[in-house]
Simulated scan of single mutants.
Amino acid sequence: MEYINVTNENIDKEHICCAISNNNDIQVSSKKEWLKEQFREGLVFLKSAERGKCFIEYLPAENAWNPISADGYMYIDCLWVAGSFKGHGYGEDLLNACMEDSKSKGKKGLCILSSEKKKPFLSDSKFLQYKGFKVCDEADNGIQLWYLPFAADAPLPEFKECARHPHIEEKGYVLYYTSQCPFNAKYVPIVEEVAKENGVSFRAIHLQSKEEAQNAPTPVTTYALFYDGAYLTNEQMNDRKFLKLLSR
């Protein structure tokens, strides 16, 4: 498998989304604009030459858009291997490349979000365990912080207190999200419109800086939906999924 390192120099011509082939789609363009800013913060986006089938996205944990304390670590935003490409070792290729790069940059280890039970858009904990990762912290909603230290005396990464007990005071549906996930650019406005049509209280909070994301009341900042203060899910909603949620 051939891999391509996406940078500010080639991002305009490279395909970067796992599900959307049209580079002019607002979902793709918004993600690319987010990536362009993060490249300046040390983000690495390594993908397969095959369109959007396998990729890893990581950056220094100090610049991660998540409320974690993991100074000196590299944080993996996303490790994705799609469909028929699973089971061929491509995920290991990408993770190994991340490990080698992180060690060359003097990092203490890697950290990543996962969960004991599989949750949407989070890495598989069984794969992480197989690769030597261990749980170092867990929030009340089951989101876990996993780490792979490069030295035995490396300090444990941990969640910030604001994310350890995901809860807010606001009533109704409240969504925290970032431009990291391409689907948000299309579907957040759609869900807002569905809520309006059904007379449902819904407020979307677009986290637009790492400082905002690092102080969010949720470990997952790409998409975190609350209802009457309680955390519900990190699964992106479209109109059908949201209407199904409302019917419960």
Rank of each mutant, 00 (worst) to 15 (best):
Lys117Gly: 10
Val44Met: 02
Arg51Leu: 09
Glu170Gly: 12
Lys107His: 05
Thr218Cys: 14
Glu138Phe: 06
Ser125Cys: 15
Lys53Leu: 06
Lys126Ser: 15
Lys119Pro: 07
Ser21Met: 15
Ser104Gly: 11
Ile68Arg: 01
Asn198Lys: 13
Leu245Cys: 07
Asn63Ser: 15
Val191His: 00
Lys117Ala: 11
Cys78Arg: 00
Met237Ala: 08
Asp137Gly: 03
Thr7Lys: 14
Asp140His: 02
Asp77Met: 00
Lys36Ser: 05
Asn184Gly: 09
Lys105Arg: 09
Lys126Val: 14
Lys47Asp: 08
Glu235Met: 12
Cys17Val: 04
Trp80Gly: 01
Ile16Gln: 06
Glu37His: 15
Cys17Gln: 09
Asn8Tyr: 10
Phe150Met: 05
Tyr73Met: 07
Asp93Cys: 06
Gly87Trp: 01
Met99Ala: 07
Arg240Tyr: 15
Tyr130Leu: 09
Glu197Ser: 15
Val188Trp: 03
Glu57Leu: 12
Lys13Gly: 13
Gly199Asp: 13
Gly106Asp: 13
Arg240Pro: 00
Lys126Pro: 01
Pro60Phe: 02
Tyr223Trp: 15
Pro60Lys: 06
Asn198Ala: 14
Glu169Arg: 13
Asn66Met: 08
Phe127Tyr: 14
Cys136Gln: 01
Phe85Pro: 00
Glu33Val: 05
Thr7Trp: 14
Asp228Leu: 01
Ala213Val: 03
Gly42Thr: 05
Ile16Tyr: 14
Leu232Trp: 09
Asp77Ser: 10
Thr221Val: 12
Ser115Arg: 06
